[in-house]
Amino acid sequence: MESTMSTAFDNLIDKLQGWVSAVIENIPNLILAILVMTASYFVARYTRKLILKLVESRVPQKSIATIIAKISAVVVVVAGLFLALGIMNLSKMLTSLLAGAGVAGLAVGLALQGTLSNTFAGVVISFRKRIQLGNWVETNGYSGEVIDVNLKEFVLKEADNNIVVIPNKMILENPLKNYSLTTRMRVFLECGVGYESDLEEVKRLTKEVIANTFDQVEDSDDVEFYYTEFGDSSINYLCRFWIDAESMLEKLNAKTKAIIEIKKAYDKAGINIPFPIRTLEFNNKLAFDDAVMENQFSNN
């Protein structure tokens, strides 16, 4: 019994001595690994500030810039951790960490597929120069001013002051019309005049009124005018012209002004803008034969 205890004690001592020897031998590597981790921490802080400054100069959304800067800092720290483990000759632990990170990343990606897709879409949208805060856009059946783009959603404010929240991935996957990219817009105006009107005079007067109302229209020849159909109560036409505008509000104001001035000119010239009417015609063909009427009453 005593020999067994003595052997076990000797083995324990040998094990402890081996550990102490290993620690002593790896002290330089340990110190170097600690220095690497410390350096990676400070490099990560500097990288975060630098990336934040660079991204903020291109992306107006602070939330997007912050998340990109944090991801950059995390990448630097993880790289320092892997380097420190390599210095400590812990390659097996490094392999296990990489395998575990891969499995965990796959699980998280599957569980948060929708959230991650919106996050990456938000980052992509933020770097698009053709989509900026304050732009008036139309997408996914909604039209309004872009007031926010974050990691989850694309926020519009419609003309009636309602807020529309759209997932980022829907913005990235669907067409988007941006009215603020150009400084000129085309106004479309549809109307109808009575059948008794002089169509040549209507065309001339309409183009003249538009040219005199808007400074951007230099001459009446710049106004396009087309008769489109013989309507039920009127002969309809389409008139279109260009204005200097960057928002739908300016376009609506221009269309309103054009309608007012055209109505004034038509009233002064005696040109009728008819509303839908129905004409009932009564003539002798509708008269009844007296003899037929008497027979019908007598039979009854």
Rank of each mutant, 00 (worst) to 15 (best):
T66G: 03
A33E: 02
I24L: 13
L280T: 10
G105R: 01
I243L: 08
A159Y: 04
K70E: 01
E2Y: 08
S233C: 12
E200S: 13
P60H: 01
M5G: 04
P167M: 01
Q113Y: 14
K129W: 00
K257V: 09
I31N: 07
I171D: 00
Q296D: 06
N174V: 00
L98G: 13
D160P: 03
K152H: 06
D14G: 13
G80Q: 05
V59E: 01
L238I: 10
L54G: 03
D215P: 02
L50Q: 07
N168P: 00
N29E: 08
G270C: 01
V155L: 05
L35T: 03
E173T: 05
A111L: 12
K264W: 01
R48C: 07
G114H: 08
A73Q: 12
R204S: 15
L199Y: 15
A84R: 01
P274S: 02
Y179D: 04
S197C: 11
A269D: 04
S233K: 10
I24A: 15
G141E: 04
N272D: 11
R184H: 10
I262Q: 02
L83V: 11
G105Y: 06
Y237H: 08
Y266K: 09
N161C: 05
L199T: 04
R45D: 09
N295E: 14
E294D: 14
S247N: 12
I64N: 00
W242R: 08
L280F: 15
R204N: 15
I31L: 15
T139A: 07
F282Q: 07
A287Q: 08
L90C: 07
I125D: 01
T213A: 07
I34S: 13
D10H: 10
N178E: 04
L156C: 04
W242G: 00
F154Y: 05
N253W: 00
R48D: 12
E218N: 11
N272P: 01
L151F: 00
L32Y: 04
V76T: 07
F214P: 06
R240Y: 15
E250K: 02
N295V: 07
L12I: 13
G18L: 11
C191D: 13
V36A: 09
S6R: 12
C191R: 13
R48H: 12
S72V: 06
N300Q: 14
S117V: 01
A104Y: 04
L97M: 12
S40I: 06
K203Q: 15
F230M: 11
S40E: 06
L110S: 08
D232W: 08
F282I: 15
Q17E: 12
T115H: 07
L83E: 05
K53S: 09
N236V: 04
K285D: 15
E200C: 05
R204T: 11
Y41Q: 08
P28D: 04
V59I: 07
F127L: 06
G144N: 10
E281V: 15
L30I: 13
G194V: 06
K207T: 15
K255E: 15
V123T: 01
V20F: 11
E25D: 15
